[in-house]
């Protein structure tokens, strides 16, 4: 309990600064994405949605890897903080996955001519979204703290398998989705330098937003654990 209070205290001190940094970086990223970065030679202005779509997808991966690490942490140590981190990151991961799917769909309509198509990256991402909705559902239906945390942790360990499958699906199968342009096995990023810089700033802004959300959500979960579960 003392540990939990300590952790919450540290979170409380950091959170306002995280919020300010996230908001500031978001303003800079929006300016760069909408005004500073040049239009794409082929796609025109519509390509700018990658500054939302790509960071959302990357942050979803990060969030689900954090769920995995926190799940291992819970199974290893049974510290409630790990369970709080896992649920917070899963919720934010689902949010970012949903955002990536919606942003991708908005980009696909003018580019591919359809809102949705049955190609590997889209399908595996949708499956990942459903998997983690199931994870949250499992948590919601459990009434005992220890059991809920253990069941969720085991599922969190299993579900992370889908993250590399989503990322590599474009390489494993014939895909309509664009191949990796930044993290490429062969050579450096295949992107104009100003576009790459804008993308990196967007990723940094989204990461700060993720950190801010995490800090707030973990604090809420720790209070909830204390009031609802640990005292019972």
């Amino acid at each position: 309990m003392i540990e939990t209070t300590l952790e919450r205290g540290v979170g409380l001190r950091i959170r306002p600064w995280l919020g300010i940094a996230a908001a500031a970086s978001f303003v800079v990223a929006s300016f760069m994405a909408l005004i500073w970065a040049p239009a794409d030679a082929v796609q025109g202005e519509v390509y700018r949605i990658i500054y939302v779509h790509v960071p959302s997808a990357w942050l979803a991966y990060l969030a689900f890897v954090v769920v995995f690490l926190a799940s291992v942490g819970w199974l290893w140590s049974r510290r409630p903080l790990f369970d709080a981190i896992a649920v917070a990151s899963a919720e934010i991961g689902v949010l970012f996955t949903g955002l990536a799917l919606v942003a991708g769909s908005i980009w696909a309509k003018p580019t591919w001519g359809v809102w949705w198509t049955w190609e590997p990256r889209l399908v595996t991402t949708a499956v990942m979204f459903v998997m983690y909705v199931g994870y949250l559902l499992l948590r919601g239906l459990s009434t005992d703290f220890q059991r809920r945390a253990t069941r969720a942790a085991i599922l969190g360990v299993i579900l992370v398998i889908d993250v590399p499958i989503v990322h590599l699906s474009v390489l494993w199968a014939n895909s309509l989705h664009q191949l990796p342009t930044v993290l490429r096995a062969a050579g450096g990023p295949a992107l104009d330098s100003s576009m790459l810089l804008t993308l990196m700033v967007s990723v940094a802004a989204f990461t700060l937003v993720y950190a801010y959300f995490m800090s707030a959500r973990v604090a809420i979960e720790l209070v909830r654990q204390e009031r609802l579960w640990i005292r019972t």
């Binding site: 998997m131 909705v133 199931g134 579900l159």
Partner: peptide, 10 residues
């Protein structure tokens, strides 16, 4: 309801 939701995507 939960088991198919958990199992089928995996």
């Amino acid at each position: 309801a939960l088991v198919p939701i958990l199992a089928l995507p995996v």
